[in-house]
Design a protein around this nucleic acid. Structure first.
Lengths: 121, 121, 121, 121
DNA sequence: GTGGTCTAGACCACA
DNA sequence: GTGGTCTAGACCACA
């Protein structure tokens, strides 16, 4: 369901958070679906339960899941969070484009990249 | 010449590296120009000399500057590095677009952001 | 008869215990009255029977109910426990007031809150 | 500067958070004052650095301190947070008074307790 | 079974 | 020196 990329420079817990955010926002995981238990996911991904715990705590803090003690973690209704997430992405996009324009990359080039980017990987 | 943004989440040394890369690639700093001394720049920006040192080491590693012992740091002829830098930027762009497509953001929306982004900010 | 508040941060069993303590001390439940059976109450409140079991065990430990094997749980004569319960409440009150005074909240403000608090909610 | 009460049922990191919140809101620790380093405080209180780390992360999340990487943690200007903290305390007070009224404790008794509470402990 | 807290200790990134 | 991340593993609270 989820895959950790060890070449990725970001911390593991952050990768886990982002993966689940995407799954939830795309509707693959739906409100009140049960999340994998901390222990199970830790075994499955071969990472420490504490790291999963931290990722889940962060997802809860951001409103993507809720915890029922003794029962597990469950997906929240986070449809209202999509807007915020889109804005985060747009901000990152703008920031990179600014860097790009600074070294003379043109709007046309960027658009070409994006259209290409959708096709392959 | 350079400005540190403390609200930026990236480490300071990375900001310094990026600022100089842009100045060099745009030709504001030209081959064999002398870089500001580590000490002077540290004082000017009110940051730790170790941090400047680290930024310069990284710039040297990437081929943007060279060091002459006892004299200081100087700008390399880095015209051939522009291509590599553009590719780095393109890779980042693709990565973010992938995330964007994952949550249903369309090509059209992204293009609108980019065209808007060039105008303001 | 009893209502669980899922927004309450306290564990469910603790809410159940407190609700019954109040009912017993106020005389709504009288000595030797039969408590609802663990199973029935669990079904009625849609919570795990283990949780009710634990709440009843705690009520018994504190002297509010007694168990007759094969028959069920019954209300004790707990008139003598009212004093202890009042002291528990007073201790909590003192503890919070201490925290309040620490950040500069005055006696007058607290009294105003209390007088207001009795009226609404 | 801080003291952990091991008889307290609350987790250690929560006690640490509350102690520092009080110190900051009372102005004992002032904006831009340096917090004790994670390691030093851990040694001083004989608790694990991870636990301090967690407390500091929570204080940062709540806006009481800010982190400068490689330098340490510093006190924020949190004067605007006092109002929120007061409301938290008032809510707790109301909740306990409700429980008290439920078992027949009167407003007068509570007020007597509060006035006594300020004098001693 | 499930999450929450904590210890002990390693190693890294940053200044 | 300072915080950040992670592992390994214990023990507890709760359902």
């Amino acid at each position: 369901m989820i895959h950790i990329d060890y070449r990725d420079t970001r911390p593991i817990y952050e990768q886990v958070v982002e993966k689940f955010k995407t799954l939830i926002l795309r509707g693959v995981l739906r409100p009140d679906d049960k999340m994998p238990s901390v222990r199970n996911l830790a075994v499955e991904l071969s990472i420490n339960p504490n790291t999963i715990q931290r990722a889940y705590a962060e997802l809860e803090r951001q409103g993507y899941i809720y915890t029922v003690k003794g029962k597990g973690n469950f997906v929240s209704d986070s449809s209202h969070l999509l807007t915020r997430y889109r804005e985060e992405i747009f901000a990152e996009l703008k920031s990179i484009c600014k860097t790009a324009f600074d070294v003379g990359i043109t709007e046309e080039e960027i658009i070409r990249i994006i259209k290409g980017g959708e096709a392959n990987d």
